[in-house]
């Protein structure tokens, strides 16, 4: 029964969730805390912190976590797969529509308008993350500046930059 509920909750979120991990995470909270009462609000806040601290897309982390607490490994698999399933189903439609009619103005013109919108949305995601929690010291600004220059101008591998930033933060913590 709980497996069916997990499937239904995360399938819905995968189908209607939109606008990046943070929006989905609040949808998950509504279902998990308010509708089903699987967790308290406090437990969900802990889960969220954990989802942000562990690697991977935040909503995948949250789904795996909720599924695991409700139904073990099988629960986590069902929750995560159900979250991805709508994307897979939608993709077959999009491929049929988009890739087959690529040269049609009905595809080209909407894409021409969607691209600048998406660029604006990605930048907004970066802007909204700029708060006191992200810029705690001089080091934060240095890391930010160095990453922009290193990645934009010198195409330094982002994984390397993340590892180096983590090490810098760790050392800074030790000496302060």
């Amino acid at each position: 029964m709980v497996f069916l509920q997990l499937f239904w909750v995360f399938f819905k979120i995968g189908l209607f969730g939109f606008g990046g991990g943070y929006t989905m995470v609040s949808m998950i909270r509504m279902e998990v805390v308010d509708t089903y009462g699987w967790m308290t609000a406090g437990e969900y806040a802990d889960l969220l912190a954990l989802s942000q601290m562990t690697p991977g897309p935040i909503s995948i982390n949250a789904a795996t976590f909720v599924g695991f607490t409700q139904g073990g490994i099988l629960g986590s698999l069902i929750a995560t797969l159900s979250l991805c399933l709508p994307s897979v189903i939608l993709m077959s439609f999009v491929i049929a529509l988009f890739f087959k009619h690529k040269e049609s103005p009905y595809v080209k013109k909407p894409m021409a308008l969607m691209t600048p919108v998406v660029a604006g949305l990605i930048i907004s995601a970066a802007v909204m993350m700029c708060d006191k929690e992200s810029f705690t010291s001089v080091l934060s600004f240095v890391i930010f500046g160095v990453t922009v220059v290193a990645h934009y101008f010198f195409k330094v591998n982002p994984i390397l930059l993340i590892v180096l930033s983590g090490i810098a933060g760790w050392l800074w913590g030790i000496y302060n």
């Binding site: 660029a119 970066a126 010291s137 890391i143 922009v148 982002p158 993340i162």
Partner: peptide
């Protein structure tokens, strides 16, 4: 906590850069 204090501004930069590149592409 310390490690994430280092990673967070790096991640913001890593989101900003593709946003800007995409603007150029548009």
């Amino acid at each position: 906590k310390d490690i994430f204090a280092g990673i967070r501004p790096c991640v913001i930069a890593l989101i900003l850069v593709p946003g800007l590149t995409m603007l150029k592409k548009a």
